[in-house]
Amino acid sequence: MGGDHPSQECKAPSTPGSKKLRSLPLGLYLSGGIVALVFLLGLIAPLIPYDPAAAVDYQRQLAGPSWSHLLGCDGQGRDIALRIVKGTEAFFWPGILAMTIAVIGGAACGACAGYMRGWVGQAVRGLMQLLDTLPRLVFIVLLCTILDPGMYLIATTAGVLFIPTIAAICRRKVETLASEDYILAHIAHGFHPAWILGYHILWLQCRPLLIRQACTVFSYVLFVETALSYLGDYGVQEPWPSWGNMVAQTREGVGFWPWFVPAVMIVVSIAALLAFGNAIARREEAMR
């Protein structure tokens, strides 16, 4: 309840001064910067050579931050900064994969379900409802126990499980416009229905929502990866680094630095991704 109050205040009419202050997209820049940093790390990580066996050096076990090791070293003397950078590999491309699957699949299914009146639309709607009933994390863990566990399996499953959410958003938009005669008027003008659905509705109208959802899916993959890696059975396995299994080192009683920085990275990245998606979507929606 307490959390609702400030946002309600924000909606109240404000003086021009505070409006100007709020229109400064601080949140967008801040979250955008963090997202850009994470993406940059994800892109350059594969280029950095890393041999998990050679990284071990018990001489510098649990060393604190220094100029040669910016964030210090962990229980096996491995450089924490390097492991954080390499750790982005664990979720970056899987995250992109899940995002792509969810957005493309969701937009296509949503457009079909909203536009097609016959059995095709009915079948798509049914399938979406069925998919929507699956609890995501439980289903992913279940699949991991049956199939060969790996980040790409996890990411594909997460992407597919997000399709109904995105499809529902697109479908609502299509149905609203259909009831406003918009689609009919543009068919009457001579446009191809695929153009109306793809460009007018999905690209122009649903884009902000899709961006928001894409960020949500990406952050979800990051969350699932760290959770599973933390638990240890299905995520990224030692000695390969992941933010999740770095945090898991707390169980070995390794002092402060080895788990603190990855934990902060997880929280900040997820928060920034969600905030960035929201900020972009809001700016797009406000564009009139």
């Binding site: 406003e180 007018h200 109208q205």
Partner: peptide, 8 residues
């Protein structure tokens, strides 16, 4: 509003 696209 059916004749015009709100975002164009």
């Amino acid at each position: 509003l059916a004749n015009l696209h709100p975002r164009l």
